[in-house]
Design a protein around this nucleic acid. Sequence first.
DNA 1: ATTAACATACAGGCTGTATGCATGCAACAG
DNA 2: CTGTTGCATGCATACAGCCTGTATGTTAAT
Lengths: 200, 200
Amino acid sequence: MQQTSPRRSNRERTETTRTALLDAARTLIVRNGYAGTSTPEIASEARVTRGALYHHFADKRDLFRAVLEREAEAVAAQIRDATPAAMPAMEALLAGSLAYLDAMAIPGRTRLLLVDGPAVLGLDEIAAIDAAHSARTLQEGLEAVMAASGDRSIPIPALAVLLSAAFDRAALAIEAGSEPNDFRSAVLRLVERVVASVPG
Amino acid sequence: MQQTSPRRSNRERTETTRTALLDAARTLIVRNGYAGTSTPEIASEARVTRGALYHHFADKRDLFRAVLEREAEAVAAQIRDATPAAMPAMEALLAGSLAYLDAMAIPGRTRLLLVDGPAVLGLDEIAAIDAAHSARTLQEGLEAVMAASGDRSIPIPALAVLLSAAFDRAALAIEAGSEPNDFRSAVLRLVERVVASVPG
DNA sequence: ATTAACATACAGGCTGTATGCATGCAACAG
DNA sequence: CTGTTGCATGCATACAGCCTGTATGTTAAT
């Protein structure tokens, strides 16, 4: 039996309660989806009441957004760790791509960030979350690489958008049970081929 | 005022009622999302009661699936029309890609098929709907083109999956207000570059 | 006569809000 | 520096409204 220790600062209480709610929401939403997860269930799993949930978050959607922010930050951190600033541009681009796939392989992340997230929060809000957490972006990586090659046949912003979509789909395919190495190599070759300077 | 004509066969009644429900659901879900659309609203918009809705469809989710099937079939038909069987493989591949973007430019389709659909029905069910309606697939087009070039550096199934993701994202970007021609040309160049045989 | 095509009524569950209570905490008094 | 006082914070409980799915009743086609 867990006994509430009689002396806890308000900051501590808030911290533990918020974390418990975020963890509970993540677990249940990954398992049953956003719509299939009720706030009574979340509160019960977190060992608090719905009162605590609605004290710390504006509504169910706001709790979900907080879950996604935590998740997006974790993904961004994994990519940062894999691409130190000293790394050459092309190497960083490929390493970052693989790091993204690895980060998204944490169970539930694809469902949270790529499926339920866009439907519940909308594409704009998801884009804002991504933008807020990914420091060195794919677009910057492409710019660094393609500046050298002098290739201008595809505008880089559009290219970054399309490649990022391919990465997302690769992550989904891997989570769905496809052979990870098939998609890892496919993503690497796709990037290589796309940034390769046109001969002549 | 619309007066129910006194003599209508059951087949006619079913047809008109089902169509009215599908149209109403499509309109409202495109506007407010699946979760933001209630069955009372749908029934009201279709000028019937919820009884009719639950008579023709197992539940709200089943109605939504029927909406998506109709939508997916319309997309597939537009692509078929743009790629007659006599067309050379590479030309058909590029024409089909553009036809997909055009088809997905019909307002609401990206939300239905790419955002709410996967979240509500799940990725598997969406994949099944796509598979059931698209006759000549992207994968077949790639196989036809790349068989000639003899290029095997990326497995074609994985490549088809990744390219299709890029197409989807392009469609979303266009619906979100990006310049359509930027993404049309980006998609064309992406396909060209990916299927281009490696020199040597 | 039977069945299809609905309309109406009902039960349970969920969301968000309003309200109440206990505890931390800051300021001031002594 | 300590005790008291008053407010804010953290949370639990109760309530209102809506929504979904089902059960039941009624009319019209076959």
